[in-house]
């Protein structure tokens, strides 16, 4: 079973399972790769974008990008 990052509501650490969709290349170029640890940090006041942490760096992601990231349960 896997969950999309866009459906995660609670902050916490996860492992990335796959990256799919139109933004695959860009996400992966930034080191957001399958098997890597991803922390969901928080949501913006309006729900999206969200803030994540990967390899010591923090990023914002909109819903459309968060939907590209599937996490291991």
């Amino acid at each position: 079973m896997s969950t999309k990052l866009s459906n995660i509501t609670k902050p916490g650490a996860y492992q990335i399972r796959t990256i799919t969709g139109a933004e695959t290349t860009r996400l992966m170029e930034m080191g957001i790769l399958p098997g890597i640890r991803l922390e969901m940090i928080r949501k913006a006041p309006t729900g999206f974008p969200i803030e994540i942490k990967v390899r010591n760096s923090f990023y914002t992601l909109r819903k459309s990008e968060a939907e590209c990231i599937e996490l291991e349960n």
């Binding site: 933004e23 860009r26 996400l27 930034m30 974008p49 803030e51 760096s57 923090f58 990023y59 914002t60 992601l61 909109r62 819903k63 459309s64 990008e65």
Partner: peptide, 11 residues
């Protein structure tokens, strides 16, 4: 058309 990307690093 669709939502545009917003991947930005928060330093």
């Amino acid at each position: 058309g669709q939502q545009t990307p917003f991947i930005m690093e928060l330093p």
